[in-house]
Design a protein around this nucleic acid. Structure first.
Ligand SMILES: [Mg+2]
Ligand SMILES: [Mg+2]
Lengths: 505, 505
DNA sequence: AGACTGTTTATAAACACCGCA
DNA sequence: GGTGCGGTGTTTATAAACAGT
């Protein structure tokens, strides 16, 4: 009797991690009914496959629709004795008490938290962008995305429930920055990233669902599974960065759209959101990173969980709650200057031309797909080509996340060029960008640096184009559809440079 | 000891249905831990509050953050003995076997399936549109939306878990057709519907999650809770309709964007999606519905579940699977004509000027917020002012859904006027619309009619504006932001009429 | 300080469509 | 040619985290 596993839409089961010692050991299924407990017992599979094996009685014939790791969609109906895909079946899941995870007695099979089998701190949105941007052609089939993810994040290959592929497809579908394209002559469908959205969305990373088990684990007396280490959401989109050294430009902000948006003074979001002026890319002020370095690895910024940062801040400030508005504002003030009109002489943000590494997206554009205003954030710059301190053994909160630096092959720069001059507003005014640069080690920042353990990096982020309030993605849609130059028109960007941000008024 | 219920983000508990007999009867909590079972036991609360009471031992002090039905946000910390909000606590949920629900012994407290306490067959997207469009000003605060929903759909007031408010907010946020506006002078935030999207999305209704329990219930030997009666997704957006009598226009379809989209012949979606030409609203060819009727009640189309339709079709065609492509295509061909170029003489869809009721959105525009192409669908027209047959007692599949006709106060027509002339493409070509009209009782339709039990209604649906492939919403965003006339500029639409769809070529 | 409001992500699921065997 | 099935893509529901008001 062959029964089909409808679970997870017939998605493939995760693979067995090589050298895990768990190969062939069936996973436990808890106390419920063996196959179809009406209760979704767990949201995450255990970090350690086959951690507890013993009471799992899943019959092999129950899983006929599993296939291999880099499934080409052809491995079907493998019910031979060598089929061990079902080993990691999600319902065969152990319930490790929360304390046990943090407890001293390290179980032998349990990998360290900084192991690469941990869940990466990137959202699906980011992961897909990383995948697609990691290719030369900047396009990928769905299967290629699957493969890339599995190869770069073993978590999805070995640990995650098969539903992660559903999530990949879901994210491809709902995010408009991902556009389906059909191969010129062939039949294959490729997923691409809209040129106008060429940046990793960066709210690194998921703030949702990541700790849905935490509340449960905090219930007294309840034995709960582990919380997957996913970083909480950070505020700022952070582009897929290649380090570029520029002279820090003046921080200007132009009230370009005050007439268009005509928002009342209460709509803080519209008003405070920096408007993106047209950013001229000139050569004078840029020390481009050596091309080989840029090509060798495009590092992605790694951030610490907000809670860790907040806790440190809290500890340092004597029980000051990290939810304190004042503290938050203090941090944000460092990151996001007030609205500065061109005429105003805000001494805090006057121009200081210092050579500093700045991370920009390869396109030099960061169009946020989100409605929340782009904020500069406390980010540890990791994209420098200098080798980072190796955290051998000790798993500090900082190093835990530092291990998630991605080694990505740098995409061809010319592939990502955006001809910004074609971006026009309906009133035929050229779009503008504002680049925010957070200054370093200035006054109160020192506190922050010390408490953070690193120097907050300057950051460039261009925000909502033309300030369409919360609908900037619509702008991107339109203009990308109409005004975007062909990707085939390769333009050498390696010699482009950032100029001073200018105020066109 | 006061503990805060984090469940559902502190959302209010549902109220007790008046005359339910369940007032004051605590809900059951199953066998798990009383308050915080780590397992999300149920996705839906039982249809019948306090259906099984006995083992619930939830203490009153556990629920301090519940507030009243039409919560004004002020009813907090009501832990008096009169507080019975916790009666319906979601975890106090009974597990009624699937058969028991359909079984003969009707439990006294269980309402009939066609009761208004059943879950309405509308998605949140639709519900919110219904709510907002039901007001004169076409805007609502969040609380007003809550209240409207509770008043119009008792399910949400008495049955649904408090998470439904979260879903409302979620839907307001993710759907770009909902735009936040601040009151001119005041502080209140209002939710509005973008004028360019003035239609009820009408994929009536949810196809997701609606039957997530069905698969479980089909597991042999597993006792499962009931399946909430939510209609599966229909294909076609169907506008919030006021019946308007027009002469059926010619079915034209203009390949306006063939140059712009430049999609290969494989991208079926792009090619087959009708392009929306500019729709001139003239007076000659329209017999507007009497205003009083239109004002009295704007009915929404009620559709039958797709599965029911499909089953009937299947039964009628002797075991022909409803998944048969041929059958499906047969149906779809009736609904969606092939791409008709202006020059082509498609005799199937030539003009027949017959007076027929057509349901159009008050704005005369139906811009789909979806990527899937708009398809006309088998829809039972219920928006006529003639009283519909009352289904007293008997719950037929058809009448079950017919009971969900909404009695909505007709919104002011002048509020929804769209000045289409201002919709311009970036190439300054006026946008065009195509109106699809399905013809009635023509040839093969007779089969369909008979098997359906009603005459499929003609339907007007303009589709993707300018054919931005799957990104029409972006277009709407832009143009609504830039070119939409003020809503304050009231223009009398009651005398407007439909003209023949014309091909500007 | 806390409640309410709004945004984003994760996850599961239903289902349509399509290509292929 | 038909047909069934699996892969792909879209949409909805729900829960949750968390930021903003
Ligand atoms: Mg997409
Ligand atoms: Mg919205």
């Amino acid at each position: 009797m062959m029964m089909r596993l409808v679970e997870k839409g017939g998605e493939a089961e995760p693979n067995v991690f090589p050298g895990d010692g768990s190969r062939g050991v069936p996973q436990q299924r808890g106390a419920g009914s063996p196959k179809a407990s009406p209760l979704p017992l767990n949201l995450w599979r255990e970090n350690v496959p086959a951690l507890d094996s013993g009471s799992c009685r899943m019959s092999k014939t129950e899983c006929t629709e599993v296939h291999g790791p880099h499934g080409d969609g052809k491995a079907k109906l493998d019910d031979s004795l060598t089929n061990i895909q079902w080993l990691g079946r999600l319902s065969c899941q152990s319930f490790i008490p929360y304390e046990e995870e943090n407890g001293g007695n390290a179980e032998p099979v349990k990998p360290s938290r900084s192991s690469s089998k941990d869940r990466p701190p990137y959202s699906y949105l980011q992961i897909i962008q990383l995948a697609i941007n990691g290719t030369q052609t900047r396009r990928m089939t769905l299967q290629q995305i699957y493969t890339w993810v599995e190869e770069h994040f073993p978590y999805y290959k070995y640990i995650a429930k098969p539903g992660w592929k559903n999530s990949i497809r879901h994210n491809l579908s709902i995010h408009d920055i991902f556009v389906r394209q059909r191969e010129n002559n062939g039949k294959a469908m490729y997923w691409t990233i809209k040129p106008s959205c060429q940046s990793v969305s960066s709210s690194s990373s998921k703030q949702a669902g990541q700790e849905k088990d935490l509340a449960i684990s905090q219930q007294p007396g309840s034995k709960v599974r582990k919380v997957k280490p996913i970083l909480p959401r950070m505020c700022s989109p952070y582009p897929v960065a290649s380090p570029v050294f520029v002279t820090i430009p003046v921080l200007y902000q132009t009230p370009v759209l005050s007439a268009i948006t005509s928002s009342s003074s209460r709509t803080r979001r519209t008003i405070d959101t920096p408007i993106a002026p047209k950013l001229p890319l000139l050569m004078e002020n840029l020390n481009s990173c050596p091309e080989d370095k840029a090509k060798e690895s495009t590092a992605l910024a790694v951030m610490e969980p907000q809670k860790i940062v907040a806790k440190r801040w809290k500890d340092r400030n004597h029980q000051q709650s990290y939810t304190s508005r004042k503290a938050n504002r203090r941090i944000l003030e460092l990151n996001q200057p007030d609205h500065i009109t061109p005429g105003s002489t805000s001494s805090t943000y006057t121009d200081k031309n210092v050579m500093e590494p700045i991370y920009v997206s390869s396109a030099g554009l960061t169009i946020s797909p989100f409605k929340t205003p782009v904020k500069t954030v406390l980010v540890q710059g990791l994209a420098t080509s200098t080798p980072c301190r190796d955290e051998s053994g000790v798993v500090s909160p900082g190093s835990m996340w530092a291990s998630w630096r991605l080694e990505l092959s740098s995409p061809k720069l010319e592939d990502s060029l955006l001809d910004c001059s074609l971006l026009k507003s309906p009133t035929h005014e050229p779009l503008q960008e504002i680049v925010q640069v957070r200054r370093k080690s200035d006054g109160g920042d020192r506190d922050l640096e010390e408490f953070l353990g690193f120097s907050p990096l300057r950051e460039i982020s261009s925000t909502d184009m033309l300030g369409f309030d919360q609908q900037n993605e619509g702008v991107a849609k339109i203009f990308s559809d109409f005004s975007m130059p062909n990707l085939e028109e390769a333009i050498d960007m390696t010699n482009l440079s950032w100029a001073y941000i200018y105020n066109r008024n």
